[in-house]
């Protein structure tokens, strides 16, 4: 039913002395990893106790703002000041050159879209499995927040559609709340009928456009 994506994350630091220090910025925590592991794949926590079999190897990377306190060999440039905290997407180059090092696994449910009936914000029974998968992922990733975008088809009032899209987004937010996810982590917004995913003017198109979409904040 659910397809899980495996993402490799390379933890890289500028100084060897930091190798065993927990990184503030590591997006994956030990907690919750076991639940994920049960379902699919081996998980190596970065934070907390050292885990077998991976030995984090120190790889020099471009200095980042967030590692500044660990010691810099040259001043930060202006553009580096704007760089994001080191995370999965911040070290793609290292990942390419050292693919076998420090592989940490996170799983993200692939299904991101919920569809709705006309003028309705009710989730379908078949959405439950998808919601549970996202709930499990959010529990495994307590620092990762979620954006839910609600949409409507083009018919009728743009303003009413905006409110309807908001209600759809709130439906998803509340459903995740019932699964134990803090609603403070979930931002529900509406784009009304302004951002159709399909162009056209028939029921097949309208059906695709009546939707709520989940976007993780690190995406």
């Amino acid at each position: 039913m659910f397809r899980y994506v495996v993402m490799g994350i390379v933890l890289a630091m500028t100084l060897a002395g930091c190798a065993n220090k927990p990184s503030k910025e590591a997006p994956i925590e030990t907690r919750g990893a076991q639940e994920v592991a049960n379902k699919t794949v081996a998980v190596t926590p970065i934070k907390g106790a050292p885990a077998e079999p991976v030995q984090p190897k120190v790889e020099p990377v471009q200095p980042k703002k967030t590692l500044g306190e660990a010691g810099q060999t040259r001043p930060l440039r202006a553009n580096e000041m704007q760089s994001k905290p080191l995370d999965a997407q911040a070290a793609p180059e290292s990942a390419k050159t050292e693919p076998t090092k420090s592989v940490v696994v996170a799983v993200r449910p692939k299904v991101r879209t919920f569809q709705f009936d006309y003028d309705s914000a009710a989730l379908a029974a078949t959405d439950h499995a998808t919601l549970e998968a996202h709930g499990a992922f959010l529990k495994a990733q307590p620092k990762l927040d979620l954006l839910v975008q609600g949409h409507a088809d083009e018919r009728g009032s743009r303003e009413y559609n905006l409110a309807l899209g908001q209600r759809r987004a709130e439906s998803v937010k509340q459903a995740l709340g019932l699964l134990g996810i803090s609603e403070a982590r979930i931002e529900a917004v509406s784009l009304g009928s302004e951002k159709p995913v399909a162009e056209g003017h028939d029921e097949a198109v309208w059906k695709q456009n009546r939707r709520a979409v989940l976007i993780y904040k690190d995406e």
Partner: peptide
């Protein structure tokens, strides 16, 4: 204006 700051519009 219509606001959804308290959930529904």
């Amino acid at each position: 204006v219509a606001l959804t700051r308290d959930q529904s519009s």
